[in-house]
Computed example of a mutant assay.
Amino acid sequence: MVIAVDAVGGDYFPKVPVQGAVQATQENPDLEILLVGPQEMIQAELDSQDYDKERIHILHAPQIIGMDESPASAVKSKQQSSITLGLSAHKKGDCSAFVSAGNTGALLAASTFLLGKLEGVIRPTISATYPTLKGISLLTDAGANLELKPEMYLQFAKMSRILSREILGIENPTIGLLNVGEEPEKGLETHKEVYSILSSMKSFVGNIEGKDILQGKADIYLTDGFCGNVLLKYGESIPGILQHMLKKTMSEENVDAQTQKQIFGILSRALDAFNYEHVGGIPFLGVNGMSLVGHGGSSATAIKNMIFNAVQCVEHDINKKIVASLNENI
Protein backbone atom coordinates (compact mmCIF):
# COMPACT_ATOMS: atom_id res chain seq x y z
CA MET A 1 0.00 0.00 0.00
CA VAL A 2 1.21 3.50 -0.88
CA ILE A 3 0.49 6.39 1.50
CA ALA A 4 1.26 9.98 0.48
CA VAL A 5 2.70 12.17 3.24
CA ASP A 6 2.77 15.97 3.27
CA ALA A 7 6.49 16.51 3.85
CA VAL A 8 6.07 20.23 4.48
CA GLY A 9 3.04 20.10 6.77
CA GLY A 10 3.16 20.98 10.47
CA ASP A 11 5.46 23.05 12.63
CA TYR A 12 8.64 21.03 12.15
CA PHE A 13 8.87 20.21 8.46
CA PRO A 14 10.54 18.57 6.65
CA LYS A 15 12.44 16.80 9.44
CA VAL A 16 9.48 15.41 11.40
CA PRO A 17 7.28 14.24 8.48
CA VAL A 18 10.26 12.58 6.81
CA GLN A 19 11.37 10.90 10.04
CA GLY A 20 7.83 9.66 10.67
CA ALA A 21 7.62 8.26 7.15
CA VAL A 22 10.95 6.46 7.52
CA GLN A 23 9.87 4.98 10.86
CA ALA A 24 6.61 3.77 9.33
CA THR A 25 8.42 1.87 6.56
CA GLN A 26 10.81 0.36 9.08
CA GLU A 27 7.90 -1.03 11.10
CA ASN A 28 5.69 -2.06 8.17
CA PRO A 29 7.56 -3.94 5.41
CA ASP A 30 4.54 -3.82 3.07
CA LEU A 31 4.28 -0.04 3.14
CA GLU A 32 5.47 2.47 0.53
CA ILE A 33 5.60 6.22 1.12
CA LEU A 34 5.21 9.09 -1.32
CA LEU A 35 6.69 12.23 0.25
CA VAL A 36 5.10 15.35 -1.23
CA GLY A 37 6.88 18.70 -1.23
CA PRO A 38 9.95 20.51 -2.64
CA GLN A 39 12.20 17.75 -3.93
CA GLU A 40 15.57 19.22 -2.90
CA MET A 41 14.34 19.93 0.62
CA ILE A 42 12.96 16.42 1.07
CA GLN A 43 16.00 14.73 -0.45
CA ALA A 44 18.35 16.67 1.82
CA GLU A 45 16.44 15.41 4.84
CA LEU A 46 16.31 11.86 3.50
CA ASP A 47 20.08 11.89 2.96
CA SER A 48 20.51 12.30 6.72
CA GLN A 49 18.46 9.15 7.37
CA ASP A 50 18.87 5.45 6.85
CA TYR A 51 15.92 4.69 4.59
CA ASP A 52 14.74 2.15 2.02
CA LYS A 53 15.15 3.81 -1.37
CA GLU A 54 12.86 1.22 -2.95
CA ARG A 55 9.91 2.14 -0.71
CA ILE A 56 10.19 5.89 -0.18
CA HIS A 57 9.62 8.16 -3.16
CA ILE A 58 9.27 11.91 -3.74
CA LEU A 59 6.51 13.82 -5.53
CA HIS A 60 7.84 17.30 -6.27
CA ALA A 61 5.50 20.06 -5.08
CA PRO A 62 7.29 23.43 -5.05
CA GLN A 63 4.67 25.41 -3.09
CA ILE A 64 3.95 25.31 0.64
CA ILE A 65 0.70 26.33 2.34
CA GLY A 66 1.56 27.90 5.67
CA MET A 67 -0.28 27.16 8.91
CA ASP A 68 -1.62 30.72 9.16
CA GLU A 69 -2.72 31.18 5.54
CA SER A 70 -6.37 31.61 4.57
CA PRO A 71 -7.52 28.12 3.51
CA ALA A 72 -9.71 29.20 0.58
CA SER A 73 -7.22 31.61 -0.97
CA ALA A 74 -4.24 29.31 -0.38
CA VAL A 75 -5.90 26.34 -2.10
CA LYS A 76 -6.99 28.55 -5.00
CA SER A 77 -3.67 30.36 -5.52
CA LYS A 78 -1.23 27.52 -4.81
CA GLN A 79 -2.04 24.87 -7.37
CA GLN A 80 1.43 23.34 -7.00
CA SER A 81 1.29 22.96 -3.22
CA SER A 82 2.00 19.71 -1.40
CA ILE A 83 -1.65 19.49 -0.29
CA THR A 84 -3.06 20.00 -3.79
CA LEU A 85 -0.65 17.68 -5.59
CA GLY A 86 -0.79 15.05 -2.85
CA LEU A 87 -4.59 14.89 -2.95
CA SER A 88 -4.51 14.90 -6.75
CA ALA A 89 -2.19 11.89 -6.67
CA HIS A 90 -4.65 10.17 -4.35
CA LYS A 91 -7.57 10.94 -6.65
CA LYS A 92 -5.63 9.50 -9.63
CA GLY A 93 -5.00 6.30 -7.69
CA ASP A 94 -1.25 6.77 -7.24
CA CYS A 95 -1.69 6.31 -3.47
CA SER A 96 -4.34 4.94 -1.15
CA ALA A 97 -4.45 7.94 1.21
CA PHE A 98 -2.96 11.35 1.92
CA VAL A 99 -1.88 12.47 5.39
CA SER A 100 -0.81 15.89 6.61
CA ALA A 101 -0.05 17.77 9.82
CA GLY A 102 -0.46 21.03 7.93
CA ASN A 103 -3.15 23.68 7.63
CA THR A 104 -6.39 21.91 8.64
CA GLY A 105 -8.69 24.37 6.88
CA ALA A 106 -6.73 24.19 3.64
CA LEU A 107 -6.63 20.40 3.78
CA LEU A 108 -10.39 20.17 4.36
CA ALA A 109 -11.14 22.67 1.59
CA ALA A 110 -8.84 20.92 -0.89
CA SER A 111 -10.09 17.45 0.12
CA THR A 112 -13.72 18.47 -0.39
CA PHE A 113 -13.00 20.23 -3.69
CA LEU A 114 -10.64 17.68 -5.24
CA LEU A 115 -12.06 14.43 -3.87
CA GLY A 116 -15.70 15.42 -3.50
CA LYS A 117 -18.18 14.09 -0.96
CA LEU A 118 -19.39 10.56 -0.41
CA GLU A 119 -22.85 9.80 -1.77
CA GLY A 120 -25.53 11.25 0.51
CA VAL A 121 -23.17 13.29 2.70
CA ILE A 122 -24.34 16.84 3.41
CA ARG A 123 -20.93 18.07 4.57
CA PRO A 124 -17.68 16.39 5.66
CA THR A 125 -16.62 16.61 9.29
CA ILE A 126 -13.69 15.78 11.49
CA SER A 127 -13.56 14.00 14.83
CA ALA A 128 -10.89 14.21 17.49
CA THR A 129 -9.99 11.61 20.08
CA TYR A 130 -10.78 12.69 23.62
CA PRO A 131 -9.56 10.84 26.74
CA THR A 132 -12.00 9.84 29.46
CA LEU A 133 -11.90 7.66 32.57
CA LYS A 134 -13.43 4.85 30.51
CA GLY A 135 -11.08 5.14 27.54
CA ILE A 136 -10.96 7.13 24.33
CA SER A 137 -14.08 8.91 23.07
CA LEU A 138 -14.59 10.86 19.85
CA LEU A 139 -15.44 14.56 19.72
CA THR A 140 -17.37 15.50 16.57
CA ASP A 141 -17.26 18.17 15.06
CA ALA A 142 -13.78 19.19 16.20
CA GLY A 143 -13.59 22.39 14.16
CA ALA A 144 -14.43 21.72 10.52
CA ASN A 145 -17.95 23.20 10.63
CA LEU A 146 -18.53 26.04 13.09
CA GLU A 147 -22.31 25.94 12.63
CA LEU A 148 -24.44 22.85 12.01
CA LYS A 149 -27.93 22.21 10.72
CA PRO A 150 -29.89 19.69 12.82
CA GLU A 151 -29.81 16.98 10.14
CA MET A 152 -26.01 17.21 10.00
CA TYR A 153 -25.77 16.01 13.60
CA LEU A 154 -27.44 12.74 12.62
CA GLN A 155 -25.03 12.14 9.74
CA PHE A 156 -22.04 13.05 11.89
CA ALA A 157 -23.24 10.60 14.53
CA LYS A 158 -23.47 7.78 12.02
CA MET A 159 -20.09 8.52 10.43
CA SER A 160 -18.43 8.82 13.84
CA ARG A 161 -19.82 5.44 14.88
CA ILE A 162 -18.10 3.81 11.90
CA LEU A 163 -14.78 5.43 12.81
CA SER A 164 -15.17 4.51 16.48
CA ARG A 165 -16.04 0.91 15.72
CA GLU A 166 -13.57 0.22 12.94
CA ILE A 167 -10.53 2.16 14.16
CA LEU A 168 -10.95 2.51 17.93
CA GLY A 169 -12.39 -0.99 18.28
CA ILE A 170 -15.53 -0.01 20.22
CA GLU A 171 -18.11 -2.64 19.27
CA ASN A 172 -21.29 -0.64 19.90
CA PRO A 173 -20.41 3.07 20.27
CA THR A 174 -22.87 5.28 22.12
CA ILE A 175 -23.79 8.85 21.14
CA GLY A 176 -24.17 11.86 23.43
CA LEU A 177 -25.16 15.44 22.59
CA LEU A 178 -23.15 18.13 24.40
CA ASN A 179 -25.59 20.48 26.08
CA VAL A 180 -26.15 22.67 29.15
CA GLY A 181 -28.34 20.10 30.89
CA GLU A 182 -29.48 16.50 30.71
CA GLU A 183 -33.17 17.16 30.11
CA PRO A 184 -34.50 17.01 26.51
CA GLU A 185 -35.84 20.56 26.70
CA LYS A 186 -32.46 22.11 27.60
CA GLY A 187 -30.33 24.16 25.21
CA LEU A 188 -31.06 26.28 22.17
CA GLU A 189 -33.89 25.46 19.77
CA THR A 190 -31.33 23.67 17.58
CA HIS A 191 -30.33 21.37 20.44
CA LYS A 192 -33.95 20.52 21.19
CA GLU A 193 -34.54 19.63 17.54
CA VAL A 194 -31.32 17.61 17.38
CA TYR A 195 -32.30 15.74 20.55
CA SER A 196 -35.58 14.77 18.90
CA ILE A 197 -33.80 13.61 15.73
CA LEU A 198 -31.14 11.61 17.58
CA SER A 199 -33.75 9.93 19.77
CA SER A 200 -34.49 7.61 16.84
CA MET A 201 -31.01 6.11 17.25
CA LYS A 202 -30.71 3.08 19.51
CA SER A 203 -27.20 4.22 20.43
CA PHE A 204 -28.23 7.71 21.61
CA VAL A 205 -27.82 8.18 25.39
CA GLY A 206 -29.10 11.74 25.63
CA ASN A 207 -27.59 15.09 26.55
CA ILE A 208 -24.11 15.26 28.07
CA GLU A 209 -23.12 18.07 30.41
CA GLY A 210 -19.60 19.44 30.63
CA LYS A 211 -18.98 17.78 34.00
CA ASP A 212 -19.65 14.36 32.45
CA ILE A 213 -17.30 14.54 29.46
CA LEU A 214 -14.20 13.19 31.20
CA GLN A 215 -16.36 10.59 32.97
CA GLY A 216 -16.85 8.87 29.63
CA LYS A 217 -20.67 8.99 29.56
CA ALA A 218 -20.65 8.34 25.80
CA ASP A 219 -18.24 7.02 23.19
CA ILE A 220 -19.01 9.90 20.83
CA TYR A 221 -19.72 13.50 21.84
CA LEU A 222 -21.61 15.53 19.24
CA THR A 223 -21.35 19.30 19.05
CA ASP A 224 -20.80 22.08 16.54
CA GLY A 225 -17.26 22.84 15.37
CA PHE A 226 -17.05 26.06 17.37
CA CYS A 227 -17.65 24.42 20.76
CA GLY A 228 -15.83 21.27 19.70
CA ASN A 229 -12.63 23.07 18.84
CA VAL A 230 -12.71 25.10 22.06
CA LEU A 231 -13.16 21.88 24.06
CA LEU A 232 -10.40 20.14 22.10
CA LYS A 233 -7.87 22.92 22.69
CA TYR A 234 -8.87 23.09 26.36
CA GLY A 235 -8.21 19.36 26.74
CA GLU A 236 -4.83 19.67 25.05
CA SER A 237 -3.84 22.36 27.58
CA ILE A 238 -4.59 20.25 30.66
CA PRO A 239 -1.29 18.29 30.92
CA GLY A 240 0.89 21.40 30.60
CA ILE A 241 -1.18 23.41 33.08
CA LEU A 242 -1.14 20.61 35.66
CA GLN A 243 2.62 20.19 35.31
CA HIS A 244 3.12 23.93 35.78
CA MET A 245 0.90 24.01 38.88
CA LEU A 246 2.58 20.94 40.34
CA LYS A 247 6.07 22.33 39.76
CA LYS A 248 5.13 25.61 41.42
CA THR A 249 3.57 23.88 44.44
CA MET A 250 6.48 21.49 44.92
CA SER A 251 8.91 24.40 44.78
CA GLU A 252 6.92 26.25 47.45
CA GLU A 253 6.89 23.10 49.61
CA ASN A 254 10.66 22.57 49.11
CA VAL A 255 10.21 19.07 47.70
CA ASP A 256 13.61 17.55 46.91
CA ALA A 257 14.72 16.95 43.32
CA GLN A 258 14.53 13.15 43.47
CA THR A 259 10.96 13.20 44.78
CA GLN A 260 9.98 15.81 42.18
CA LYS A 261 11.31 13.57 39.43
CA GLN A 262 9.31 10.63 40.74
CA ILE A 263 6.11 12.69 41.03
CA PHE A 264 6.49 14.11 37.53
CA GLY A 265 6.99 10.58 36.21
CA ILE A 266 3.76 9.44 37.84
CA LEU A 267 1.88 12.49 36.53
CA SER A 268 3.21 11.93 33.03
CA ARG A 269 1.95 8.34 33.01
CA ALA A 270 -1.41 9.40 34.45
CA LEU A 271 -1.87 12.00 31.70
CA ASP A 272 -0.62 9.77 28.89
CA ALA A 273 -4.15 9.46 27.48
CA PHE A 274 -4.03 13.17 26.56
CA ASN A 275 -1.02 12.54 24.30
CA TYR A 276 -2.24 12.89 20.69
CA GLU A 277 0.85 11.03 19.46
CA HIS A 278 -0.87 7.69 20.01
CA VAL A 279 -3.53 8.38 17.38
CA GLY A 280 -1.48 10.71 15.19
CA GLY A 281 -4.27 11.84 12.91
CA ILE A 282 -7.93 11.36 12.04
CA PRO A 283 -9.63 11.20 8.62
CA PHE A 284 -12.10 13.75 7.33
CA LEU A 285 -15.38 11.86 7.50
CA GLY A 286 -17.61 12.12 4.44
CA VAL A 287 -14.86 12.88 1.91
CA ASN A 288 -14.79 10.62 -1.15
CA GLY A 289 -11.25 9.47 -0.48
CA MET A 290 -8.93 9.06 2.47
CA SER A 291 -7.50 12.34 3.75
CA LEU A 292 -6.14 12.48 7.30
CA VAL A 293 -5.05 15.48 9.33
CA GLY A 294 -2.77 15.55 12.36
CA HIS A 295 -1.77 18.08 15.00
CA GLY A 296 0.47 20.91 13.79
CA GLY A 297 2.95 20.11 16.54
CA SER A 298 3.14 16.44 15.59
CA SER A 299 6.29 14.51 16.39
CA ALA A 300 7.77 11.82 14.15
CA THR A 301 5.93 9.21 16.23
CA ALA A 302 2.63 11.02 15.66
CA ILE A 303 3.26 11.14 11.90
CA LYS A 304 4.08 7.43 11.90
CA ASN A 305 0.87 6.62 13.77
CA MET A 306 -1.15 8.82 11.42
CA ILE A 307 0.23 6.81 8.51
CA PHE A 308 -0.73 3.57 10.26
CA ASN A 309 -4.21 5.01 10.90
CA ALA A 310 -4.55 5.71 7.18
CA VAL A 311 -3.64 2.11 6.41
CA GLN A 312 -6.29 0.92 8.87
CA CYS A 313 -8.94 3.18 7.39
CA VAL A 314 -8.24 1.84 3.90
CA GLU A 315 -8.08 -1.79 5.00
CA HIS A 316 -11.35 -1.45 6.94
CA ASP A 317 -12.99 0.26 3.94
CA ILE A 318 -14.60 2.82 6.24
CA ASN A 319 -15.94 5.00 3.41
CA LYS A 320 -18.02 2.15 2.03
CA LYS A 321 -19.35 1.47 5.53
CA ILE A 322 -20.11 5.16 6.07
CA VAL A 323 -22.25 5.31 2.92
CA ALA A 324 -24.14 2.19 4.02
CA SER A 325 -24.64 3.58 7.53
CA LEU A 326 -26.35 6.76 6.31
CA ASN A 327 -29.45 4.74 5.44
CA GLU A 328 -29.46 2.65 8.59
CA ASN A 329 -31.23 3.24 11.88
CA ILE A 330 -28.45 2.69 14.37
Rank of each mutant, 00 (worst) to 15 (best):
P184D: 10
G181M: 06
S200F: 07
A144I: 06
L188G: 10
S196T: 14
K149I: 04
S199C: 04
N145W: 00
G116E: 13
S200V: 10
I126Q: 00
L133E: 12
M201G: 02
L177Y: 07
F113M: 08
A144M: 05
E193P: 02
L133S: 11
V121L: 03
V194C: 04
S200M: 14
L139I: 07
E193Y: 06
N145M: 05
P124M: 11
E166S: 14
K117A: 06
G120N: 15
A110P: 09
F113Q: 07
E171Y: 02
I162D: 08
L139H: 09
I197T: 08
L178Y: 00
T125K: 02
L177C: 03
I162F: 09
S164G: 06
G169C: 12
A106D: 10
K117S: 10
R123D: 05
L188N: 15
Y130W: 11
S199Q: 12
T174F: 12
I126R: 00
L154D: 08
S200N: 15
L118S: 12
E171A: 15
L198G: 04
E147R: 03
I136P: 03
A110D: 04
P124N: 10
E183S: 13
G187S: 12
Y153T: 05
I167V: 09
L148A: 12
L154A: 11
G176R: 00
K149F: 06
A142L: 00
I175L: 01
N172F: 07
P124K: 14
L163A: 02
E151T: 13
A109W: 09
K117Q: 12
K158A: 08
K158R: 15
T104N: 13
F204V: 09
L139V: 06
D141Y: 00
I170G: 08
M152C: 03
G181V: 04
E151N: 13
G116D: 11
E193R: 13
A106W: 06
E119A: 14
N145G: 01
K202T: 15
Y153Q: 04
I122F: 11
E189H: 05
K192H: 09
E189A: 14
I197R: 13
T112M: 06
I170P: 02
G187T: 09
K186G: 08
S160Y: 03
P131Q: 09
S203G: 07
E185L: 10
L114W: 03
P173V: 10
